[in-house]
Design a protein around this nucleic acid. Sequence first.
DNA 1: CTTTCAACAGACCGACCGGTCGGTTAAAAT
DNA 2: ATTTTAACCGACCGGTCGGTCTGTTGAAAG
Lengths: 194, 194
Amino acid sequence: MRDAEQTRQLILSVASEEIRKSGFVATSLSTILSQCNISKGALYHHFANKLELGYAVFEEMFTPMFLSMWEPAVTQDDPIEGLIALFSSFADDVSCEDIICGCPLNNLCQEMANVDEGFRLRILAMQQKVNTLIAENLRRVSDQLRNDIDFSQVSYFIVSVFHGSSNLSKSTQNKALFETVMAELCRYINSLKR
Amino acid sequence: MRDAEQTRQLILSVASEEIRKSGFVATSLSTILSQCNISKGALYHHFANKLELGYAVFEEMFTPMFLSMWEPAVTQDDPIEGLIALFSSFADDVSCEDIICGCPLNNLCQEMANVDEGFRLRILAMQQKVNTLIAENLRRVSDQLRNDIDFSQVSYFIVSVFHGSSNLSKSTQNKALFETVMAELCRYINSLKR
DNA sequence: CTTTCAACAGACCGACCGGTCGGTTAAAAT
DNA sequence: ATTTTAACCGACCGGTCGGTCTGTTGAAAG
């Protein structure tokens, strides 16, 4: 009957979904508890406090999510085509609900970076990891690209567009705006080729 | 002695600064009251509730701020040079504290667009106004630009980069990253020329 | 001088928050 | 069969929040 690890995973799963939808602060423990059908005692048996739960969600749920999104796109033979395919398919496949929620990394950065150092450092590490991932894979095919490219700069630029557009789209509640910006982003990425 | 309008402006001023720094939800009325040295009765004499205060801050403080930032840049003779000058000077002049706070429009969009319809519609209107402003002024000089440009798309793209980069920079707590992305943005804008 | 009312003061309220703690239960170890 | 303890329960706590309401005050109008 009792399975501590399963309970822990249930908490992480429900908490990550709730944080994704409502943010960290707005997510109340009581909401998580009722969705999990567990008591407050159970939650505090597995996590020291709300902040530690948030860190666990970031590390065990969000981090794999980010990497599984960016990594396949840039590690393939042609990272340029990989990124274009990623953004194109993203614009096609993303649900209206996802648009409303936005990217969890971007959301948490905005909400928590100034509030909690633990979150800030985790977010920073993740951003740098993504940036390195993109930059190094672009450098890998630098012979196919213009020779005036600052790979790190371009990489941060790309991520900025992605996060900025997903944020902009929150006010329209539909993905039309997101698709528009992604189209321009693909055009930009294509212009990196020599 | 008593000056109702002055009190109202004081409240708006303190509230806008606090919302800019901490967001709408995290800004408590007690903080505003103590900074204004007024009572809760005074605040509720001028504003029906916290939400109405937030709307007033958006309309009377933030909206003029946004317009005064974007308008002069694009309405000048050469909007391309205007935008580049804007982003360059912004990267130079912005304080570390401003970076940490981020753009109020972007912040409110992220925080409130999914939570309150009143905020969402106001933010949406502002975004569309800025987009129209940029797009129409680019179209004005379209003879100097490439002929394959979708002005609205490019305009949303530019704003996305700006907001995305100011958000990214929150995790680093310094403006180096912001400067980097602004540099790439200026390069992108230059590439619009024919 | 008196009246009137906008402008303000601040005690108070219920709701909700994260967190604590003593008690219970189920299952593994002996 | 008994003991032990990890896993879980849920009542309770202090604190903060937005919001209400009664009362006071100052200045303008009559």
